[in-house]
C-alpha cells in the first residue's frame, strides 16, 4: 500500500519520502526567544499508510542544544491537540504538560483504504530568563 509521512509548520507540511523529516530552529527563533523570553514552535505531522501496514514515528530532539540561547533555555517538547495549543499566549513554564513519550502510532495495522492523512501536532516550548 501507499505510505506518506510529512512534517512541517501547521498547514505547510513537507513530504519526507525517506520517512525521516526534520523541523529546525535557529538564529531567527533564538532571537525571538531572547526578545520575548519564551517561544512556541508548532509542528504538524501528517501520516498515511494504506493497506494493512501501520505507521509509527519517534520524535527526537537534539541530543545537545549547545551552549547558546537554546542551550541555556528550558525546553519542553510535547503533543498538542491543535496548533492553537502551541502559542505563547496560552503556555507558560508553569502550565506545561507532564513529560510524555516522544512517539506516536497514528495509523494502526488494521486494513485501511483511507487516502486522507492522520494529522497530529507537537509543540516545542522554550523559556529563557535572560
Amino acid at each position: 500500500g501507499y505510505q506518506s509521512f510529512a512534517v512541517g509548520a501547521p498547514g505547510a507540511t513537507v513530504p519526507a519520502p525517506t520517512g525521516t523529516a526534520v523541523r529546525t530552529v535557529g538564529p531567527q527563533e533564538a532571537a525571538k526567544l531572547v526578545r520575548d523570553g519564551e517561544l512556541a514552535v508548532p509542528v504538524q505531522v501528517d501520516s498515511v499508510s494504506q493497506g494493512n501496514k501501520g505507521l509509527h514515528y519517534v520524535v527526537s530532539p537534539p541530543e545537545d542544544w549547545g551552549s547558546g540561547v537554546f542551550g541555556s533555555a528550558d525546553i519542553a517538547l510535547f503533543p498538542v491537540a491543535s496548533p492553537r495549543d502551541c502559542r505563547t499566549e496560552v503556555l507558560s513554564p508553569q502550565s506545561l504538560p507532564e513529560p510524555s513519550g516522544l512517539e506516536s502510532t497514528p495509523v494502526p495495522s488494521t486494513y485501511s483504504t483511507s487516502t486522507g492523512p492522520v494529522t497530529e501536532h507537537w509543540c516545542l516550548y522554550a523559556s529563557h530568563d535572560g
Binding site: 525521516t20 501496514k53 509509527h56 514515528y57 495495522s109
Partner: peptide, 24 residues
C-alpha cells in the same frame, strides 16, 4: 548570548511501518 550565532537545531521525526502482529 548572541542569537545570530545560534546554530540550527533539528528536531527529527522518524517513521516506520509495521505489519499486523508486529510491535510498532
Amino acid at each position: 548570548l548572541d542569537p545570530a550565532a545560534e546554530p540550527v537545531h533539528a528536531i527529527t521525526f522518524t517513521s516506520t511501518t509495521f505489519r499486523p502482529g508486529e510491535q510498532p
